[in-house]
Design a protein around this nucleic acid. Sequence first.
RNA 1: CGGGGUGUGGCGCAGUCUGGCAGCGCGCAUGCUUUGGGAGCAUGAUGUCGGAGGUUCAAAUCCUCUCACCCCGACCA
Length: 605
Amino acid sequence: MPHGLAMLEILRRGRPGGLPISGLTDWKIRIYLMRWSKTYIPTLRQKQTEAELISHQLLLRAGYIRKLAAGIYLYLPLMQRVIDKFSNIVREEMNRAGALEITMSVLCPAELWQKSGRYDTIGKEQMRLKDRHQHDMVLCGTHEETVTNLIAGEVRSYRQLPLNLYQIQVKFRDEIRPRFGLMRGREFIMKDAYTFDADAESFARSYQAMVDAYFAVFKRAGLDVIKVESDSGAMGGKVAHEFMLLVDTDAGEEDIAVCNKCGYAANVEKAEFKDDAPDPTDAEPKDMETIDTPGAATIEEVTEFLKVDATALAKTLMYKADGKPVAAMVRGDRDVNEVKLRNALKAVDLEMASEEEVLKYTGAPVGFAGPVGLKDVQILVDPLVAEMKNMIVGANAGEKHIKNVNLDRDFKAAEVIDLTRARGGDTCPHCDGKLDVKDGIEVGNTFQLGTNYAEKLGAKFLDADSEERPCIMGSYGIGITRTPQAALEKYFDDKGIIWPKAIAPYLVELIPIKMDNENQVAAAEKIYAALTEAGIDVLYDDRDERPGVKFNDADLVGVPVRITIGDKSLKDGNVELKARSADKFDLVPVNEVVEAVIRLAETLN
RNA sequence: CGGGGUGUGGCGCAGUCUGGCAGCGCGCAUGCUUUGGGAGCAUGAUGUCGGAGGUUCAAAUCCUCUCACCCCGACCA
């Protein structure tokens, strides 16, 4: 028996699940069962109603995932292979960057989160439970507390730094509303890395090393991502970046402001901008005048009623920040950026005031709030409003507005601070380019954490001058399960998935047209053996199905390269080689298939 | 948590308004015929109609409670 077929016998008897098969060289260790009839790929013909996004729909239909409960998914054999391939890319690039792989527990004593202070601020998203001894435990959605605790007391000298620890592991966040399949699940897999440095210069190098590694990871995975500035949210710290995959479908969960000239890019939550509106009139302050505006509550209605531009109005929006009333003022044509507002207030809890609360705070129904005469309400004013003269605002009375209102003369601001949400067409804060707002999916993030966690959890060391100092930390995530799904928002057509080759479950799908044709099966076995020996992942569709079924399943599953074996070409000793992304195939002699596959794969994303 | 919606065979759905034998398509099993883009014929299996309680001679259908899931919003390292 030829060597190839002997090996196939080993494979056939091998255990599913990818356990190493003895006697194979290192690079063949990840070989699995690859016959369709022996694996488990439950494809579905019909659209599943539970899925909205195309990527989610495809993963369900092509047999990659199944749902167990809201936001909790099982990864079937194809998905497991995608996860393995992407994880390995991440692992290799992290290791190359000098990070060390560890595994931390999903469970964590609540005590550590109480120490860091996040137990009280992270909210209901954190899953909490008690063990049999009634000890409070949490399920980790991120591991700053755990890893910092690990380091605390163990790292005592600057000589032991820098340190970069990472894991690829399950996370749990009890999302208020899970959706979009793997993109917003409650349980998911994440690569999370944590750096510990002794000083700022060292930290800058560690951070840059992670940024470089991230670009390398996404490039290898066939994904174009951009790095954008982001808000650091509940992580604390000042500087943060997100790695975004820009998409054209409606799956974009984040709005990204991108300068068309200088490369500035930021999450709209964070984005700064220069406003282009004409300078406010330099008219002298006029006397305030209360005017009736019957039936005009919204900005549109008021501008229509008074025949003025929205830029002449100031909106006063009522919020409740940690239980206290707050008024946020932005220009009439602008929207409040709630992240900026939250940061300005340093509030844990921020929500818009209800209709009843607005009535209580302002004495008027929604739509007529204004800063003049507001009592016991903190007023934050956007700079664009601060420079307005003779603005029009709500009168805190039903159906009334006030004209010619001026800051300082007519009301006082607790603070003048940027509260406005950037929008497409705004001018870049760093050059004279224009900002474009695009839809993106976050696939990775990096945070500069400073010394907050190290101080609270006692990760301190002695520096060269024998002084005790807290570690400077960073944390870095890549969504292992979300990224492949995000990729599908870009790589699909009306027939199904078109994987980038590096994260495809298999590189090649092998389809004999007729399984009861000896010549076709013999050629298939030969090619299967040759590709397998060359270390190429092949999915051999050995089912006795009609060709249409096999072709449609192949297109749905999205393996990048397809080899079709049929009588038409086989009579001349050829098989058909076709890229999933192409319309046409090439004829290739049976004994040259391996080289041809490698050559074709080189040209594919 | 607020608003809207859906639970009927493995999947997709009809039936519910107006109570009266639980149906259709796909899939599944067996046989025959087929075989280059989701085959045809024949035969067959599969349901506590999400759950509990109630009304009724009779409940998938009406009433009450409850659970799960989906969509919109708030939230999101």
